[in-house]
Amino acid sequence: MAYRWKNDLTRADVTPKSMWLNRRQIIAGAAGVGLVGSSAYAQDALTPNSKSDIESYNNFYEFGTGKEDPARNAGKLDTSNWTIAVDGLVDNPGEYSLNDLIGGLTVEERIYRFRCVEAWSMVVPWNGIELADILDRVGVQSSAKYVAFETVVQPENMIGVQRNVIPFPYVEGLRLDEARHPLTIMATGIYGEPMANQNGAPIRLVVPWKYGFKSIKSIVRISLVDEQPPSTWNLINAREYGFYSNVNPNVSHPRWSQATERKIGGGLFAARQDTLMFNGYDEVAGLYEGMDLATFY
């Protein structure tokens, strides 16, 4: 099932390590002489963000609500002896180690646009496994219609959980056909290295045509269910955050427009760019045929 989706970009297009290590200094230097507006990095929508951008600007409320909080606080996350409970309508339920769940499956590099519901975006070179491959390994029963996910809760290591900023554990869900789509991956790395804790180590979901909060981090439970599972932001405010949450420039968030976004890392003079339907992944349109996406936002 791997290799069902092909990157527009190849490995050669990923910034070499020496470059992403230096990118911030380069941008800073360019800004200093007023060149930032013409920076090729800022202009090209599919140039991956630097590793430091990706690791320093995060939403991971378990570690605080500020963008820089996860980078500061997620070091405490204990990822040793990680296990993932697989339950519900599956043939092989149980408590899986990471190796049991994904060992031997094909890890691909997927360079995806990542669009936050807050109207900023990045491009991330993920390393991950198609979720469909994992689902096949655990054996999905025919009565299953949705996949539910749950993030780890380590109160003693998570300052946001101690402060109860939103209800925990963080939960998310996908329709089974969304989960099985070739674009949907479970990522374990970024730039060919194990991902940082603030990015959702050791394993997270990546669904590139949906707003970022659907791509749940640091997963400890995968449940196959027959009814639409709860999702955290939908529980907090159903009017603002729907279950589907597909990137859609035509459906505004009740408080702000989703028509444009700003790719982070472009400096103080970075322009906004138009947000694309399904974040540019038109191949998923068939999943929603006949659905009014303004109703099922």
Binding site: A28, A31, S52, D53, E68, R262, G265, L268, A270
Partner: peptide, 13 residues
């Protein structure tokens, strides 16, 4: 600070 990157990768916000 916004110009030099000291405000992080999204200095405008």
């Amino acid at each position: 600070q916004g110009l030099t990157g000291a405000l992080g990768p999204e200095p405008i916000n």
